[in-house]
């Protein structure tokens, strides 16, 4: 009666099987694994709490001290002035990365799930997943030695022609700016967003697609009417996962982005200018080398800010998914 092809078998069969074998060893095994998995679950919570406590405890000296105590390190900035531009840079880089990666990912996911012939979709999906396995230092190296020289002339051209618009002003070679870093971040988060979106698109009820086709819709109209509305919440949560990774990415940003000099921090929208932005994670990795005493505490306070941002992003993702679940059209 339904042509639906849900992969899982109905889940009712497992239980009687287990109770038929309900001898003592089985019960012991059940209890053992229940205990183990509960313990693992609690361990995760404890770890998270420990990280949070550590961050707060180590950051507290900087938060409670007067700005004079760490003026040497921050070049006379107070904590807000020091961390603010870093937060701005972090969010800006991640957002540019999302703007690039999300449309691309949706395209790739649609292609794999609905357009590509079966023979092609498998290998393409596999290759996209492989991108996730490349370590970030390698992305950093690739970004600096390949992407930056290649993209420099393009940015130079844009900056010369459109430099009267503030966001494109003041390009300076080499292209160690926030846009280059964001492009590399986009490549890094692409596989996560693609994989999740793809799986969600594959879950689109066959009935919806067929109904749409029966009304004479083209493939693009099917995607727009049936697949995308159904997968919207999935794509959003996928993007948030990607955003989480982009926010915390350290090594690739450190290797590509030329940050502002300490004490001359700015909120800048010039996305093609070098030395105008820095992200929290890259800043910590860079400054911790020579930092000591109060400087370390200030850096950890910035880490606390990053922790808070990622927490908020994840909670927002969950909230959106929960809110959208009712309208996902999966009925």
């Amino acid at each position: 009666m339904s042509t639906d092809v849900t992969p899982e078998a109905p889940g009712a069969e497992g239980r009687p099987l287990a109770s038929r074998r309900g001898t003592t060893p089985g019960r012991f095994g059940n209890r053992l694994f229940a205990g183990l998995s509960t313990a693992s679950g609690i361990l995760i919570l404890v770890t998270l709490a420990a990280v949070a406590i550590f961050l707060v405890r180590e950051a507290l000296p900087a938060i409670t001290a007067s700005p004079a105590a760490y003026a040497d390190f921050t070049r006379d900035l107070n904590l807000g002035q020091y961390i603010g531009p870093l937060v701005f840079g972090t969010v800006l880089a991640a957002l540019i990365a999302l703007v690039i990666a999300v449309p691309l990912s949706i395209g790739i996911a649609l292609f794999i799930a609905h357009y590509a012939p079966k023979r092609l979709s498998g290998p393409v999906a596999y290759v996209v997943d492989l991108l996730a396995a490349i370590p970030s230092v390698v992305y950093g190296l690739w970004g600096f030695f390949w992407l930056v020289p290649k993209i420099g002339p393009i940015m130079d051209w844009i900056s010369q022609k459109l430099g009267f618009i503030p966001i494109f002003a003041d390009y300076a070679p080499p292209a160690k700016n926030v846009t280059s870093a964001a492009i590399v971040l986009a490549v890094m988060i692409l596989p996560i967003i693609t994989a999740v979106s793809r799986e969600v698109f594959l879950q689109t009820p066959r009935l919806h697609i067929e109904a749409s086709l029966a009304l004479g819709a083209t493939r693009w109209e099917v995607a727009r009417q049936a697949i995308l509305p159904f997968g919207r919440s999935g794509v959003i949560s996928a993007s948030m996962l990607g955003l989480g990774r982009a926010l915390g990415e350290t090594m690739a940003v450190l290797m590509i982005l030329a940050p502002f000099a300490r004490g001359t921090e700015v909120y800048s929208i010039k996305i093609l200018a070098s030395a105008e932005h820095q992200t929290i994670a890259a800043n910590i990795a860079q400054q911790i080398r020579e930092a000591h005493g109060m400087g370390v505490s200030v850096l950890i306070a910035s880490g606390l800010a990053l922790f808070a941002i990622t927490l908020v992003v994840n909670m927002a993702a969950r909230w959106i998914v929960a809110r959208r679940a009712a309208f996902s059209g999966a009925n």
Binding site: P259, A261, E290
Partner: peptide, 16 residues
């Protein structure tokens, strides 16, 4: 020990 002016371009470490 930190660059005192707004910078135009920067590198991390001697190799950078």
């Amino acid at each position: 020990d930190a660059w005192p002016l707004p910078s135009q371009q920067s590198g991390d470490g001697t190799s950078g």
